[in-house]
Amino acid sequence: MQYELIAKRYIKPLFELCDQVTLDNLSELLNSVATAFESDKFITIMRSSDVSTETKTALVLDMVAPANSKVANNLIKLLAENGRLDLIPALAEGLAREIGRVKRLYKGRVYCDSAIDKNSIDMIARDLGNKVGATISLEFVPSTFDGVRVEVDDLNIEINFSKTRLNAQLVEHILKAI
């Protein structure tokens, strides 16, 4: 949470200064660097006090060098000056989320205790997207939830259908009808 708040302070000026193409390219670059943070060895290097800031900066700059992006280079140098290179994963995630918000592209998850085919998930995403005026992509996540739950965090949407609750409501309805 702390990293997300700090990342927002870097993201806002990027949106004010850069066009959409530059932001998309920067997001892709930061995502590629963020994947390096999944490696324990890379994290050890980045957090080591034995490795100089200049060496860490050069390492990250080498990772984005093929893109020849002045914006990415300046951002990395700024992060290094402030001792915040470890902020890159949060920055990549926040930038992608903000770009998605601007383009109205959102990601969500479908939780269920049994497998759901890809066509059904795509249909749910399309119908939900039509309801909210956005493009939504959903990912299936196996869980122990007794039913189906759909979550799209950035839109604050949570929809769930519980088998237990449905059965209870059905029994209640039948009893009322008698």
Rank of each mutant, 00 (worst) to 15 (best):
E54G: 00
L128E: 04
K107T: 12
D117R: 13
V152T: 03
E172H: 12
T144H: 11
V141S: 04
M63N: 05
K41P: 03
V33H: 05
G147C: 10
L30V: 09
V171Y: 10
N156W: 11
D153S: 12
D127L: 15
E139M: 07
T55H: 06
E38F: 07
M123C: 09
I76R: 04
D62P: 00
R47Y: 08
I174Y: 08
A177C: 15
T57F: 00
S137D: 13
A168H: 12
V64G: 05
A125F: 01
D122N: 12
V21Q: 14
T35N: 15
L138M: 01
I124N: 04
A90N: 04
I136V: 14
A65P: 07
L95W: 01
P66M: 02
A90D: 04
R9Q: 14
K41W: 04
F161Y: 12
I45N: 08
Q169K: 13
D153T: 11
S69K: 03
P66K: 03
V51F: 05
R84L: 04
K176L: 15
V110R: 03
R104K: 15
E151S: 08
T55W: 00
S114G: 10
E28G: 12
D117Y: 09
C112L: 00
G94C: 01
I116G: 01
G100E: 02
G100N: 00
P89M: 07
V102G: 01
I159Y: 09
L166A: 14
I76F: 03
A72S: 06
A168K: 11
T57R: 07
R126V: 10
K131V: 14
G108V: 03
V148R: 02
L78G: 08
D86L: 14
R109Y: 10
I99E: 02
S114E: 12
N82M: 07
L59Y: 05
K70C: 01
Q20V: 11
G83V: 10
R104Q: 13
I11V: 13
P13D: 07
L23V: 06
A67V: 00
N130K: 15
Y111H: 05
G100I: 00
I178R: 14
A177P: 09
Q2K: 14
R109F: 08
I178S: 12
P66R: 06
D19L: 04
A96S: 14
T57E: 05
F15C: 00
L29G: 08
L175I: 13
L61E: 00
F140H: 02
I6Q: 08
A80V: 09
F37V: 09
N25M: 09
L87H: 03
L17R: 14
K163W: 04
D113E: 10
R165V: 15
D146F: 06
K56F: 00
I6S: 03
S69V: 07
D19R: 10
E16I: 11
E98Y: 07
G147H: 06
I136S: 03
G94N: 00
I136H: 08
S49G: 12
S114K: 12
G129F: 05
L29N: 04
K8A: 15
Q20K: 15
V152P: 00
T164W: 05
A134P: 04
K8E: 14
G108T: 02
